[in-house]
């Protein structure tokens, strides 16, 4: 009993956690009539595959996915690069103003994004980036939290590594990318995953800086779908499911590398 009790507890709460997903999938499988009939059962009782083509016909989700992947992928890569470099510098290099700069970086975490939204929009427009991939990507290419995490990862490496490499005459850049980066790989994956999720799941910024349908990302497409007159709950759930799916797949793929210790390193200040 004592051995299965934790599993029972975890399963019970786990069911609560995934229950909305199961409900979503179940509703996505139904036709409109049974989807709008109240029911507690999670088993759809039917598989109305027509929902899938219907959803894709209602909005060009193919194009939305292309945009979202392109944007989130580029953001993710850039964030890894900028935070690797800055994190290393803040952890291992000695230079005047290091403390103040780092505090400033951390401080930017505390400014609500909504408060600096319009000044950013004005900047994007003046740069002529309105309705372009640049507007969706560039402002998100660095973020304080990733820099912080990466710095913690480099701090956690034993100092001997650095000293040995320096004695061998290895420059900072070679060390960072050839020796340092592989050593902090769990953190790299973590930062990449979080950056991807953050970009893929963002809504307000893409809504404001893009106009053309060909530049729309999936979250914007989903809200457009939502405001649709006389909304079809089954199609809505189908759309939600296909929007959620890539992040779930990505997480499953990344979790092999995404070990807890990566985040654990972030805590020891």
């Amino acid at each position: 009993m004592r051995r299965v009790l934790p599993h029972i507890l975890l399963a019970a709460f786990g069911l609560l956690m995934v229950w909305p997903f199961l409900w979503m999938l179940s509703t996505a499988c139904k036709d409109y009539a049974s989807a709008s009939t109240p029911s507690l059962s999670l088993w759809p009782g039917m598989f109305h595959w027509q929902n899938l083509p219907d959803t894709f016909r209602a909005a060009p989700f193919g194009r939305y996915f292309f945009n979202s992947f392109l944007v989130a992928g580029t953001v993710s890569l850039s964030v890894v690069l900028t935070s690797l470099m800055a994190g290393y510098a803040f952890a291992r290099l000695r230079f005047p103003g290091r403390g103040v700069l780092f505090a400033l970086v951390l401080g930017s975490m505390m400014v609500p994004f909504e408060a600096i939204f319009v000044p950013n929009f004005v900047l994007i427009s003046r740069l002529g980036w309105y309705d372009s991939y640049a507007a969706l990507i560039v402002p998100w290419c660095a973020n304080a939290f990733s820099i912080f995490l990466m710095r913690q990862a480099f701090l956690a490496l034993p100092a001997d590594f650095y000293d040995a490499a320096r004695i061998d005459g290895c420059g900072h850049l070679r060390f960072l990318f050839r020796i340092g980066a592989p050593l902090v790989r769990p953190m790299v994956i973590t930062v990449a995953l979080f950056a991807f999720l953050g970009s893929y799941n963002s809504l307000l910024w893409p809504l404001v800086v893009t106009a053309d349908g060909s530049m729309r990302v999936v979250q914007v497409g989903l809200t457009a779908f939502n405001t649709d007159a006389g909304v079809r709950i089954n199609l809505l759930m189908c759309a939600s499911a296909i929007v959620i799916l890539p992040t779930v797949v990505l997480y499953f793929a990344a979790q092999r590398y995404f070990v807890e210790s990566a985040l654990g390193a972030g805590i020891k200040a």
């Binding site: 290099l93 400014v111 600096i116 402002p139």
Partner: peptide, 21 residues
């Protein structure tokens, strides 16, 4: 080295976080 390494991050943060702030 510090200038080179922190420049990309600080440029982005400077333009899209500090300046608007």
């Amino acid at each position: 080295a510090a200038v080179l390494l922190t420049a990309p991050a600080l440029l982005v943060l400077g333009a899209f976080s500090f300046t608007p702030m």
